[in-house]
């Protein structure tokens, strides 16, 4: 490596062997990893909840409710996540809402991903034959009951592959929280990098850390898909 390491700068002989920067700071990096996983899980739960609620709002035969759903999707998915993150952290205090960085990042990420989840689930709802909800309604079920017991279970099964994509995207998007100093994986890596300049090694390790989670997520989605569509 050509970069100067602290030892090289200090003028003291050969650079430390490859891996030293990561190994020496492993607990610090792993604590960042833990924060990343927590952030991803919490944001995923929020995104799924928002997605189900707004997908239903976008599907009800009541125009004002549909409008609310459409407004959410269009505003949120058409602005960058980084802008939303800054808005939550730096913007909200102006109106008196002061959030810890982690909370701001979690809200921004959940709300942002929720817009895409909404559209994925809505497409699933549209893919369910209209006869299904007619059959449910003709048995006396309300719109809500038909949704809950008949349409949504089928819609969500059909939505698993795109939801898998979104979960993976969400997991990687947690790295944007580093921009507001949330001590997650990338932020901690940047701190170590600024101390050691072992760029190649540190960011390689960080990339691997993301892969360790995202690759199994893809496999898990495939498994879930087969389970949920067993009846076919």
């Amino acid at each position: 490596m050509l970069q100067a390491t602290p030892t090289a700068l200090a003028g003291g002989g050969a650079p430390p062997p490859f891996g030293t920067a990561v190994l020496a700071n492993l607990p610090f990096l792993l604590s960042g990893m833990l924060a990343t996983v927590q952030l991803a899980l919490l944001a995923l739960v929020l995104a799924l909840a928002l997605g189900v609620v707004f997908a239903i709002l976008r599907s009800v035969p009541v125009r004002p409710l549909r409008f609310v759903g459409t407004a959410y999707v269009e505003f949120v998915r058409n602005t960058p996540l980084l802008v939303q993150t800054f808005f939550a952290y730096f913007g909200l205090p102006t109106v008196g809402v002061r959030l810890p960085a982690f909370t701001a990042a979690f809200l921004a990420l959940g709300v942002y991903t929720g817009a895409f989840v909404t559209e994925a689930i809505r497409s699933g709802i549209l893919a369910v034959d209209r006869g299904q909800s007619e059959a449910a309604r003709s048995l006396g079920m309300s719109f809500g009951q038909g949704m809950r017991y008949v349409v949504l279970p089928q819609a969500i099964a059909a939505t698993v592959p795109p939801l898998g994509n979104l979960s993976i995207a969400l997991f990687k998007n947690t790295s944007l929280a580093s921009s507001i100093a949330v001590a997650e994986l990338l932020y901690n890596a940047q701190i170590i990098n600024s101390r050691t300049f072992a760029t190649y090694e540190i960011y390689g390790f960080v990339g691997l850390c993301y892969l360790v989670f995202t690759l199994p997520m893809g496999a898990l989605v495939g498994l879930l898909e087969r389970r949920l569509t067993r009846y076919r």
Binding site: D129, E134, S138, G140
Partner: peptide, 14 residues
């Protein structure tokens, strides 16, 4: 109280 039976059955496949 009024049940409809459809041409395409519309059973709940799941």
């Amino acid at each position: 109280q009024i049940i409809m039976v459809f041409q395409q059955f519309h059973l709940f496949p799941h």
